[in-house]
């Protein structure tokens, strides 16, 4: 409290600003690289005339799948986020407000913790085999299911935290008022946890958008996501550095927009997730 009156010494400002510069610089550098020609980049030029060549190549190039990747990522991230939010909200409400025995709660949470700790790639092999045997390999459905599963533990804890914040009496009052379970959930709980839903949803969306190893194993060209598209640039024999930079820049755009317009929810999500 007393600190707001006292301003920090200049040295502290300097440390923080320096730190921010170190964090920010690589991003600025790659954005800059995306506007350079391959030659300007390779020559290490600082003065250059910006060109949209790389963006043109990424977006309109014949060999570039980036637009498809972007579309795939959007479909997969939005769908899996919708599913994971629905499933996690239902489950969190059920677990924390519908009187499950203690052991049910514990088993589910313990399992989600364990699963969350194991690298997803360890299960990707089994997913691949299973999906392939029922024809879900290289489909949106397969990746969506996988991303839903990967994000479910985190969404479950976060929604659990938010739903535990809804007073029990509100649920009881609604029950007395004549509301059956779906009504209680939809008309009372969901409106109250809306900020929590936003926080959870944004993080699930971003994590699905960013996810690489599982998408790598479960998709081929037609269903490849944005990170796969970027990964491909690095795999080619002669790396198209500026195009990689342009694609990277474009891939950050959704997260960056969310960071600007919905920072409040992201902060809330990160801290509540960390509280657990």
């Amino acid at each position: 409290m007393t600190d707001h009156g006292r301003s920090a010494p200049l040295a502290r400002h300097a440390v923080l600003f320096g730190f921010a510069l170190i964090v920010l610089f690589p991003f600025l550098w790659i954005v800059m690289a995306s506007f350079k020609t391959q030659i300007a980049l390779l020559m290490g030029q600082w003065k250059f005339s910006p060109t949209l060549y790389s963006y043109d190549a990424v977006l309109n190039g014949k060999t570039s799948d980036f637009v498809t990747n972007f579309k795939n990522s959007s479909i997969i991230a939005i769908t899996s986020t919708t599913i994971v939010l629905t499933v996690a909200t239902l489950a969190a409400f059920s677990l924390y407000r519908l009187r499950w025995a203690d052991w049910v709660l514990r088993i589910l949470l313990a399992w989600s913790v364990i699963f969350h700790m194991v690298p997803p790639i360890t299960l990707a092999g089994a997913w691949y085999t299973m999906f392939r045997s029922i024809g879900l390999d290289n489909t949106y459905a397969g990746i969506i299911l996988a991303h839903t599963t990967i994000n479910l533990p985190m969404a479950l804890w976060m929604m659990g935290v938010f739903i535990k914040d809804v007073p029990k009496e509100l649920v009881e009052a609604a029950q007395i008022d004549g509301a059956k379970t779906p009504r209680v959930l939809w008309n009372v709980v969901v409106p109250i946890v809306r900020p929590g839903l936003a926080a959870t949803g944004i993080l699930c969306f971003i994590f699905s958008w960013n996810e690489f190893p599982v998408a790598l194993t479960l998709s081929q060209r037609a269903t490849a996501t944005v990170p796969l598209g970027i990964g491909k640039y690095a795999q080619e024999n002669t790396i198209a550095f500026t195009e990689m930079a342009a694609a990277s820049t474009l891939s950050i755009v959704p997260a960056f927009i969310l960071l600007i317009v919905a920072q409040r929810f992201i902060v809330r999500g990160l801290t509540s997730g960390a509280v657990k």
Binding site: L16, V226, L259, I260, Q263, V267, L270
Partner: peptide
């Protein structure tokens, strides 16, 4: 070192959250 720095809070927070939200591949 930087507790009590109250200026430019939103800017700093934006900068420091950014790396968390960027794909690992990027």
């Amino acid at each position: 070192m930087t507790t009590r720095v109250t200026r430019l809070r939103v800017f700093y927070r934006t900068v420091f959250i950014l790396p968390i939200l960027v794909p690992g591949i990027v």
